[in-house]
Design a protein around this nucleic acid. Structure first.
Lengths: 237, 237
DNA sequence: GCGATTTTTCAACGATGGTTGAATTCATGA
DNA sequence: TCATGAATTCAACCATCGTTGAAAAATCGC
C-alpha cells in the first residue's frame, strides 16, 4: 500500500529497495541469529513485508535464498581480499607474513566498523557455516577456496622452509580464530568481566594479526630445525 | 519387546543402556550433525527406539534434553582439563605456556582418538554452540567459565608482562582454533587436495599447541616492548 | 492505449513440529 | 498378594512448516 506512493522523492536519493533485496537482508539477519533451520520463510517474509511465494519466485526455495545470500557478500569479500593481497605482493614479493595475514583479515575489519551492522550479521552466519560439521566444509570451500589458495601460496612463498601441510593447518587455526572473533558471540565480555568487548573489533584485530603470524613462524621454524637435524628426508612440495 | 528378555546375560558385562541414555546419545549425534533446530524430537526418539513422550518425562522439553547432553560431557571435560592443569602446575609454577595450552587441548585429543566416535559428535556440537552469535557466548560461559578462568590465571602467571586484556583475547583465538579443528568439518581435506586429513587429530594437535603458544608469547612480548618504550603508563591488573 | 511479460498476491496442500494429559505397564517393598 | 510409585505408551492438540498452482496486478515495449 504505502510503499510505492513516492517512487522518486524530490531528492531521489533512496531508490526504495526491491522486494528481492529486502528478503535477502532480513534473511541474513535472522539466519545469523538462529541458523538455517531456526528461521521460517514465513518469519522472513513477514518481517520483510512481502509474500511468502516471492521466495520461490526469486530463489526457488529456502536453500536457494541461503545460497544467494552467502554468495552476495562472499563475492565482495573475495574481491577486497584479493585486491589487498595484490597490493601487499606488489610492495614486496615474497611479502612479510604479517602483511599477508592482514590482507586476509583487514577487509573484515573494514566492513564491520561503522554504523552499518549488516556485515556483522553476515560474519555471524559465516562462523556458524564454517563450524558446521555436516556441510560447513563444503559450503566454505565453494565460496572461498579459490581465493584462499592464493593466500596459501603467498604464505608458502613467505615461509619457504615450511611444509605445505604446516601451512594448511596454520591456515585452519587462522580460520577458526578469525570466524569466532567476528562472530561477536559476546563470550569474551562475560569471561573477562567486562574488561574486553566483543564489538571492539579494532582492538582484537590489532592483536590477532601478530598472534597468527607468530604461530605461522613458530611452526615453520620448528620444521626447519627438524630438517636441519635430519637433512636426509625431504618432504617439501 | 525384545529388549529386556535378557537383563543380565551370562557375563553381565553390558547392562543394557537405559532409555534415557539412548535418547541422549542419539540426540547428541543428530544435534551435532544438523544443529538444535535441524532435528526433531520425533526423529531422535524414533532412532533411539523410544516414545516421544519420554523426552518430557526425563528432560521436560527439547531444551532440557539439549542442556543435559551438553552438561554431561562438559563435566567430564572440565574434570580432565582441571586434573591436567593440576599436574602441570605441580611440576612447575608458573608453568611453561606450552604446558598450560596442552593441558587445555590434550584432553580433547585423548577423547577423540580411538574407535569410540561419540566424542567427535560432541565436539562438532560444541563448535556450533561456541560460534552461535545468539546464545553461544552464554551457553559456553555457563558450562566452561569457571575452569577457563583457572587457565586464564595460569597463563597470566606464565606471562607476567602481559595485560589481562591480551590474555583474554589470546584465549579467544585459542578457543576459535580449537573448536574448529575438533569440529572435523573436512574443509581442510578438500582445500589441501588430500594433503591434510581432518580426522588426523594427533597431527594437527602437535602443531596447534606450539602455534598458540607462540601467539601468546608474541603478544606479550609486544606489550612488554611497548611498556619499555613508555614506562609511565601502567595498565596491568 | 494495448498486448506481453514480469512481478505480486491468494489460498491451499500435505507433512511435521513440540508438547501434553491420561491411560497403561512395570518394578518394588510390605 | 497387593498397593505404591516409577517408567512407558497412546493418542491427540494446535500451530507452523516449505512449497505450489493459478489468479491478479503492475510494468514495459510499441
Amino acid at each position: 500500500m504505502a510503499k510505492t506512493e513516492l517512487k522518486l522523492g524530490m531528492a531521489a536519493k533512496k531508490p526504495r529497495k526491491s522486494r528481492k533485496d529486502r528478503i535477502i537482508e532480513v534473511a541474513e539477519k535472522l539466519f545469523a541469529q538462529r541458523g538455517f533451520n531456526g528461521v521460517s520463510l514465513r518469519e522472513i517474509t513477514r518481517e520483510a513485508g512481502v509474500d511468502v511465494a516471492l521466495v520461490k519466485y526469486y530463489f526457488d526455495n529456502k536453500e536457494g535464498l541461503f545460497d544467494a545470500l552467502l554468495q552476495r557478500r562472499a563475492d565482495i569479500l573475495n574481491r577486497e581480499r584479493g585486491e589487498a593481497l595484490d597490493r601487499v605482493l606488489a610492495r614486496n614479493n615474497p611479502a612479510p607474513v604479517e602483511d599477508i595475514i592482514d590482507a586476509f583479515t583487514h577487509p573484515l575489519l573494514n566492513e564491520v566498523v561503522g554504523e552499518d551492522s549488516t556485515w556483522r550479521d553476515y560474519f555471524g552466519l559465516l562462523a556458524q557455516v564454517n563450524n558446521n560439521p555436516e556441510w560447513g566444509g563444503q559450503v566454505m570451500s565453494k565460496y572461498f577456496d579459490p581465493l584462499v589458495r592464493r593466500f596459501i601460496y603467498a604464505l608458502k612463498d613467505a615461509l619457504p622452509e615450511a611444509d605445505m601441510v604446516d601451512i594448511y593447518w596454520c591456515y585452519h587455526f587462522l580460520s577458526g580464530a578469525l570466524t569466532l572473533t567476528f562472530a561477536d558471540t559476546r563470550r569474551i565480555d562475560s569471561l573477562s568481566g567486562g574488561l574486553c568487548h566483543s564489538a571492539d573489533f579494532e582492538s582484537v584485530h590489532k592483536r590477532m594479526v601478530p598472534f597468527i603470524a607468530a604461530g605461522f613462524r613458530s611452526i615453520c621454524a620448528e620444521r626447519a630445525a627438524e630438517r636441519a637435524a635430519t637433512p636426509s628426508t625431504e618432504t617439501s612440495s
